[in-house]
Write a protein that binds this DNA or RNA. Structure first.
Length: 302
DNA sequence: AAGGTTCTCAACCGCGGAGAA
DNA sequence: GTTCTCCGCGGTTGAGAACCT
């Protein structure tokens, strides 16, 4: 059966997204939620295919995304999960809240692979790099091991503490270290090991409706890692930074009204910006009142 | 400073699975 | 059972950034 193209490609735009397109997509999804992606570009007034819109949203615009490099702890999690699951990036990503499969895949290919090779570990088999003679034998062994292990435990890899993963070798000590380190730097509710033990999987997290999107209150201690996010070549990078949900300091009355940034009509991005010493305010011109106050640190994002 | 090379990562492509008709 | 549509996944690409000579 021949496959039809995912969309009518004539007249559709490709390549980097512009700030304007991002606005349209965000505004549409916040208004309507995530529905049929095929219909999104038409309804949102975008000259993109639905697939491109979905990708842009899930990999870049989603408000629950963490930005910035993977922490040492996350990296070790990826290695361990990769040893269990192979190149199933979406499964791996499901164990790392706020991370996308694309991000993890890129990080694996650009950083972790090299790191493992440097350590003398084959990034594919997670075994010590050995001579050619051993290789074919090991490949066969690997195949035999992988087939049964992947069939039943896709979403709940076997991290039985009594049983060391077969593929976990030299780096196991560094994993332990990283876990200890991670325990310090991460809150208990974000501990991936704990999440896994509870069979948590972001696959199971229901889609957010616009009104359900919440922005965490300020905790400046957490902002440093996200601020190290890499620069984007896209000309929408500045706009993205607006959307990174920096650690806002929400005015009390604003919070008590149970309103969020996303309750505002985001098609009106022409909100005024007042410079008020240490704090900067985003002012709704129609209401003539500040809707958001950013402290100096948060302001660095904009 | 300039040119070349390498690195990074957002975005694209094509395929397979799931479900509806 | 077959066909079609949509979604999501994994591999790959290419533009821009960063680094090196």
């Amino acid at each position: 059966m021949g496959r039809q193209p995912c969309c009518d490609k004539i007249g559709l735009k490709k390549g980097p997204w512009t700030a304007e397109e991002d606005k349209k997509l965000i505004n549409f999804i916040l208004t309507n939620g995530q529905c049929c992606w095929r219909a999104v570009p038409k309804l949102a007034g975008l000259l993109r295919c639905g697939k491109s819109c979905r990708l842009r949203w899930t990999n870049y615009l989603r408000p629950d995304l963490k930005r910035g490099l993977l922490s040492e702890y996350e990296e070790q999690m990826v290695i361990e999960l990769h040893a269990q699951l192979g190149n199933r990036w979406s499964k791996i990503a499901s164990h790392l809240p706020g991370r996308t499969d694309n991000e993890i895949k890129n990080h694996w290919n650009t950083h972790i692979k090299k790191k493992l090779k440097k350590m003398g570990i084959d990034p594919i088999t997670h075994r010590p790099i050995s001579t050619a003679n051993d290789k074919s034998q090991q490949e066969q062994e690997q195949k035999q091991k992988q087939i049964p292990s992947l069939t039943d435990s896709d979403t709940t890899p076997d991290f039985d503490q009594n049983k060391e993963p077969e593929t976990s070798l030299e780096y196991s000590s560094s994993i332990t270290e990283a876990r200890e380190e991670g325990g310090k730097s991460m809150t208990s509710t974000c501990d991936p090991m704990e999440l896994m033990n509870n069979s948590f999987c972001t696959d199971e997290v229901p889609l957010m409706e616009p009104h359900e999107i919440l922005v965490a209150c300020a905790d400046s201690s957490l902002s440093s890692s996200s601020s190290s996010s890499s620069s984007s070549s896209s000309n929408s990078s500045n706009f993205l930074q607006d959307l990174q949900f920096p650690d806002f300091e929400w005015p009390c009355d604003y919070m008590s009204n149970s309103m969020g940034l996303w309750d505002y009509d985001l098609s009106r991005w022409d909100l005024l910006i007042n410079d008020n010493g240490d704090k900067k305010q985003i002012v709704d011109p129609s209401l003539h009142c500040p809707i958001m106050v950013l402290d100096q640190e948060s302001w660095a994002y904009i």
